[in-house]
Write a protein that binds this DNA or RNA. Structure first.
Lengths: 233, 233
DNA sequence: GAGGTGAATGGCACTCAGTGCGCTCCAGGC
DNA sequence: GCCTGGAGCGCACTGAGTGCCATTCACCTC
C-alpha cells in the first residue's frame, strides 16, 4: 500500500526536523536525546546521523543550501560592480532564508538564545558566511592597499549589520519589516566604507563629487565632507 | 622534601596544559584522548574536568582571565573619552595576551587552523569579546540615532581589525610587529567610523577642498580613487 | 519473470566526552 | 586527639558519534 506517494526526495529528513523541533520545544534541547527524536520520527538511530552530522545540525537544516546559493551568487559577479554593494546584495539572500519561514526562524531563535551549545554552532555558521564575503572582497580588492584588511573589516561590518537587523526582526516575532531594517543597516555600513550609495543598479553618470585633501586632513574629516556635499543634492 | 616551593596556586592546571599541548602537537588534537592527557600528567581523569569544563578549554587556558580584564577596563571608562577609541584600546589588551607568549600562541594557531572543533570554540571566545565591545558601545551610544546598530557594526569592525592583525602576526611565527599592525588596522576602522567627532582632540579642521565633477564614472569607482589618492601621502 | 545491483535503511557494538557520587587523604582549627 | 572542609581520585553511567554488516527495496537487464 502506498500511503504516501510523496516519498520522492527527502521525507525522512523533514520528518526528523519536525520531530526534533517538537521535542526541543516541549522539553528543551539538552533534555532531548537523539534516541528520542528517532523514536518519535519512527526511524533508525543510524539514519539520523546520515542526514545530520551532529545533533546541532538538525536545528539549522537549510544553512548549507543557503551558503552554497550565496557563494554561487558571489562567484557569478562581474568586475564592473561595486564589490561592497555586491556583498550587501549577497547578505540579503541570507536574510530571505530566515524571512521565508518566520515561525520556524522565531522558534529556532528562542532555542539558540537559551542553549549555549547552539549559540556556538550558529556562530560557526555565521562565520562561514562572513568568510565567503571576505574571500570575495579579498579577490576584488586584491591590488588595493590594505586589501585584505579592508575585506575582512567590511565583511564583518556587513555581517554585523545583517545580524542586527535579523535579531530585531526575530525579537519582534517576525512582525516587523526585516528587509527594510536590513537596507537601513546596510546603508549605514555603505556610508562608512564605500561612501554614500547610488540608489540601485544604474549608478552611472550622475554628478560625481570629488574631494581633494591638501595637507594632512584626517580621513574621517574628508569622508564627512563628502557626505555633506552629497546630501545637499 | 620540598622539591618545588612554587606549588602555591595551580601547578596541576599548568601541568595539564603542558601535557595536553605536548600530545596535541605530536599526535594531533582528535587523536589525543583526555585519558592520554591525564596519564601523561600523572593525575586522575576527574581532575581534568575540574580545571577545564571541556577538552577544548585546555587549548585556551587564559581567555577567561583576559576577558575579565578587558571587561573591567571598559567598565572603568569615563564619559569624556571617545568610545570608539576606548574600544580600540581595549582590543589592544587582547592582542597583548597573545604576544606575551609568542610560541604558545603560534602553536595554538596551528592547532586551531587544522581542527574544525577548535575553530568553532575560538569563534565563541572571540564572540564574547565582541559582545563586550558592543555592550559597552551600546551604553555609550544609547542616545544617538541607530545607537545599537552603530555599536554592533563598530564592535564587529574592531574585532575584525584585531583578528586581521593577529592572524598575520601568527602566520609570521610571531616575528612581525603585531602592535604596529593592529594600530594600522584600527586607524582604518577609526577613519571609517569615528565620523563627526574628532578622534582625540588635537586635529581640528585642516583645509579640505570639495570639487564637483560631471564625468561619467560610477560613484564607487570615484570613491576608490579618492581613497587611493589619500593613501599616497 | 528470474536474477542482479546499488542505494537507502536498520541494528549493533564500540569509543570517548562529560557527569554524579562517594571515597580517601591531608591541612588546619578546637 | 578529633573534627571538618577542600582537593584529588575511582567508578559507573549517560549520550553523541562511528564503523560495520545485514536487510530491504527499487530498478534494470536478460
Amino acid at each position: 500500500m502506498k500511503t504516501e506517494p510523496a516519498a520522492t526526495r527527502p521525507p525522512m529528513r523533514d520528518a526528523l526536523v519536525a520531530a526534533a523541533f517538537q521535542l526541543f520545544l516541549e522539553r528543551g534541547y539538552e533534555q532531548t536525546t537523539v534516541d528520542d527524536i528517532v523514536a518519535l520520527a519512527g526511524v533508525g538511530r543510524r539514519s539520523f546521523f546520515r542526514y545530520f552530522p551532529s545533533k546541532e545540525d538538525v536545528v539549522f537544516p537549510d544553512h548549507e543550501r543557503c551558503l552554497a546559493e550565496m557563494t554561487a551568487f558571489l562567484a557569478e559577479s562581474t568586475d564592473d560592480q561595486d564589490p561592497v554593494r555586491r556583498v550587501c546584495d549577497a547578505v540579503r539572500i541570507v536574510l530571505r532564508m530566515y524571512t521565508e519561514n518566520p515561525t520556524f526562524s522565531v522558534q529556532r531563535y528562542r532555542l539558540t538564545k537559551k542553549v549555549p551549545g547552539l549559540r556556538a554552532y550558529e556562530l560557526s555558521v555565521v562565520w562561514r558566511y562572513e568568510r565567503a564575503f571576505a574571500d570575495y572582497l579579498r579577490g576584488r580588492l586584491a591590488g588595493r592597499q590594505d586589501g585584505t584588511l579592508r575585506a575582512d573589516v567590511i565583511a564583518a561590518a556587513v555581517a554585523a549589520a545583517h545580524n542586527n537587523a535579523l535579531r530585531s526582526w526575530l525579537r519582534s516575532d517576525g512582525q516587523g519589516d526585516a528587509s527594510a531594517a536590513l537596507d537601513h543597516a546596510l546603508g549605514y555600513v555603505q556610508s562608512a566604507f564605500s561612501g554614500p550609495s547610488a540608489p540601485d543598479g544604474e549608478e552611472e553618470t550622475e554628478d560625481v563629487v570629488v574631494v581633494v585633501s591638501r595637507r594632512g586632513a584626517p580621513l574621517w574629516r574628508v569622508v564627512q565632507e563628502i557626505e555633506g556635499a552629497l546630501e545637499k543634492e
